[in-house]
Design a binder for these strands. Structure first.
Length: 737
DNA sequence: GAGTTTGAAACT
DNA sequence: CAGTTTCAAACTC
């Protein structure tokens, strides 16, 4: 324990939680046990140490976590999850260890049990390991946490050399407990809902869907990996495990975290840990070939992002408190360009992608990661990690195709799963983003970047602002408005919309929200359900602009018009003049026509394709821009946890399907962001009862779509699939359209 | 790439 | 709430 404290001290983290002490005793006892000693003797690694560190680390993580949660809304959701996991992990670990000890005691060959477990892991049969991991304790205890704990225990073994006997031992029990994923899923879902429910309540007034969205958002994470089906790995587990590892093996951590220094190490470590997790995930998932795993990773990443954020925050605080850490360094790491470039040599870059992105992106990233054994060596900080994806991650990638190819490869193992498609799609977007980054480095012109991005990604991969006077702290700034930090590709001047200025950003957000509580709410909200409510809209479109447009000259036919930009028809709320919005005029005539057209062409594959693709794009894109590798701005809780619009998905499936008949080419990008986001939830929501049918009918890729549904449809993963599926077509390298 | 247009956001 | 200004994206050349 002394060692632990020392380490903590070194890291500038003071962790003397009661939990720790509590844990400590049992552990020490355990360590003293002959079995433990025996095991230790067998393994070159020193379990005792590891155990201690694990605890310490958990504690550390604990400490850092709270800071993470300071950030509002989206983060809060995930954070909460994350936090929970950690929390549980902490307590559970002791249990686990005790369990292990128990097992060891019971088992004659004390070492045998451990060895067996180790073997299982060491054999590295990904599927096996995964299964085991996933084989969560059936206990309805519904403790994801418990599961997570289990995962934690397992993961370390799998990934690193079996250091933790206890963990390995633990895996044993769970192996048998393989439960239908469904059950687990439900559990998870329930939990998620619980978590999200809180957040949602704030929103409900504005958007009834918001709650769903929220649920969808994070749940999707869970769902995602649930959906993956059998093999569900808990990201957190990886994180924790990795964390442990990092603590245990400073060597490893150090290696990974080269360039990180002293006080920053804690945070950095966390980040790196997450990266490690990815790696681990890779190992496990590589063989897995299931989209779910990817999705799952997405979750992890997301957590990572938040985690990193939190850690970063804390880190900063620590630093300010006199820690040896170089603040500037940490901050700088945020900027991808510096550190990232060196890093990425081909494969490495892929890992960078991981950072908290949307599911799609996550999936992409995960895929990439899976296929590429990457080392996240230079990931200095969480931030870097987060941002890395954009610039660094793809820096190596020459062309979008390349990226896509990679992605497709990665996705290929997903077996025609929607996720794979998503991946590809995302990849293209990401590519665009990447390309932008690349370009950004060489080219200073934002426009150029933008164009490049568009070209490469086909859709604006992410938001890139060009603010000159607003400091990116006003809604003028697209990044800020979208609830994301500006990244390198942005050509903004005097930008304050960066993690470094998180406080400022949050304060500004609060201020703006105080003025307009819905300022950061999605501009396009689903109205399909509310169609009845929203009598103003006769149109079939299910989404409408929140406030409506005020166009005078554009006729609502250009992206100047927010309605058009959002891919939604104008509504009664609009004060536009001469509205000719192809997605639906104020009078709703156009929409009706569109609907008829769509329906009439139901038999026409091409037409359907068009519709579907558009819809897909909508759904897909939204996730990417903000999530694509960019750190989302933690929303102030005070704001009632309104998610950044990018995160808020208020579905409008119908609008997508019908309203998008129009050939909206230029405006898709943003449209996607708002509507698209919305779309997903909507589909999810509306199609819940008969999810697939709706999609299938219009989807050109029905094949791809249907399989996932059918196979996974029973699970909550279905939601995820739906979401991902839509996105696929547009991004695919060779969209039929 | 520069300049113009446009409409949202911010301000009064 | 209305009018004006500011701003940055969208667009055009």
């Amino acid at each position: 324990m002394a060692d632990d404290k020392d380490q903590e001290k070194e890291k500038g983290i003071v962790m003397d939680t009661p939990e720790r002490t509590q844990i400590a005793n049992p552990l020490s006892k355990f360590e003293d046990s002959p079995v433990f000693n025996y095991i230790n003797s067998l393994s070159p690694i020193k379990p005792v140490k590891s155990v201690h560190f694990t605890q310490a680390f958990s504690n550390i993580s604990f400490a850092s976590l709270p800071s993470v949660f300071t950030s509002p809304h989206v983060s809060s959701l995930k954070d909460s999850k994350f936090l929970r996991r950690h929390q549980f992990s902490d307590p559970s670990k002791p249990e686990l260890t005790s369990e292990d000890s128990k097992k060891a005691e019971t088992s004659e060959g004390n070492s045998t049990a451990a060895q067996n477990t180790l073997k299982q892991h060491s054999d590295f049969n990904p599927s096996n390991s995964i299964t085991e991991t996933s084989a969560v304790p059936l206990n309805r205890c519904s403790n994801l946490e418990s599961r997570k704990l289990n995962y934690e225990a397992v993961s370390p073994v799998t990934m690193n050399t079996l250091k933790l006997v206890g963990s390995s031992a633990l895996s044993g029990p769970f192996i048998n407990s393989e439960n239908g994923p469904l059950e687990i899923e439900t559990e998870i879902e329930g939990i998620n809902q619980l978590h999200h429910g809180k957040e949602a309540c704030d929103w409900d007034s504005l958007i009834s869907d918001a709650s769903e969205l929220l649920n969808f958002d994070s749940p999707s994470d869970t769902v995602a990996y649930k959906g993956s089906g059998q093999n569900t790995l808990d990201p957190t587990s990886f994180n924790t495990s990795l964390m442990k590892q990092t603590n245990d093996d400073n060597d490893d951590a150090l290696e990974i975290n080269e360039g990180l220094k002293g006080g920053t190490e804690n945070h950095v470590k966390i980040a790196s840990t997450s990266l490690n997790n990815f790696e681990a995930g890779e190992a496990v998932e590589d063989t897995d070939n299931e989209g779910g795993s990817n999705l799952y990773r997405g979750i992890r990443r997301r957590c990572l992002v938040f985690e990193t954020l939190g850690s970063r925050r804390k880190h900063l605080e620590d630093i300010t408190n006199g820690s040896s850490v170089n603040l500037s360094e940490s901050n700088q790491t945020i900027v991808p360009s510096n550190n990232l470039l060196p890093l990425r040599t081909g494969n490495d870059s892929t890992k960078c992608i991981l950072p908290g992105i949307g599911l799609h992106l996550n999936a992409i990233a995960s895929n990439l990661v899976d296929h590429k054994a990457v080392k996240h060596e230079n990931l200095g900080s969480g931030r870097q990690l987060i941002i890395a994806p954009s610039s660094a991650a793809f820096a190596s990638m020459g062309s979008g195709q390349e990226l896509i190819a990679n992605m497709s490869d990665a996705s290929s193992f997903e077996n025609d799963m929607g996720p794979a498609q998503n991946v590809a799609e995302d990849g293209s977007k990401a590519l665009g983003f990447v390309g932008n980054d690349e370009l950004s480095q060489s080219q200073t012109s934002p426009r150029k970047k933008r164009r490049r991005a568009e070209n490469a990604g086909d859709a604006e991969a992410c938001k890139r602002c060009n603010c000159k006077k607003s400091k990116c702290l006003k809604l003028y700034c697209e990044c800020f408005a979208a609830g994301v930090y500006c990244v390198e590709p942005c050509a903004c001047h005097d930008c304050f919309n960066k993690p470094i200025h998180e406080d400022t950003v949050l304060a500004t957000r609060k201020q703006i929200e105080s003025r307009n509580p819905l300022a950061f709410a999605p501009k396009v909200i689903k109205t399909s359900e509310s169609m009845q409510e929203d009598e103003s809209s006769n149109t079939p479109a299910s989404a409408r602009h929140k406030r409506g447009c005020n166009c005078k000259k554009s006729g609502c036919l250009k992206k100047y018009c927010e309605c058009f930009q959002g891919g939604v028809g104008c509504s009664i709320n609009c004060r536009c003049e001469g509205c000719r919005n192809t997605f639906g005029r104020k009078d709703g005539l156009e929409m009706d026509l569109e609907v008829n057209e769509c329906e009439g062409n139901a038999g026409d594959g091409s037409l359907q394709m068009v519709l579907y693709n558009e819809a897909e794009q909508v759904s897909a894109t939204p996730a990417t821009p903000s999530r694509l590798g960019r750190q989302s701005i933690p929303l102030p809780n005070s704001s009632k946890g309104k998610p950044p619009r990018s995160f808020l998905a208020i579905g409008s499936s119908s609008s997508q399907r019908f309203g998008k008949l129009n050939h909206f080419k230029g405006g898709l990008n943003k449209q996607l962001q708002t509507v698209g986001e919305n779309e997903i939830p909507d589909i999810f929501e509306e199609n819940n009862s008969s999810p697939i049918s709706g999609v299938k009918s219009c989807s050109p890729n029905s094949k791809r779509v249907s399989p996932p549904h059918s196979s996974m449809g029973q699970r909550s993963s279905r939601k995820l699939i739906l979401q991902s599926i839509p996105s696929f077509p547009c991004l695919t390298p060779n969209p039929k359209q």
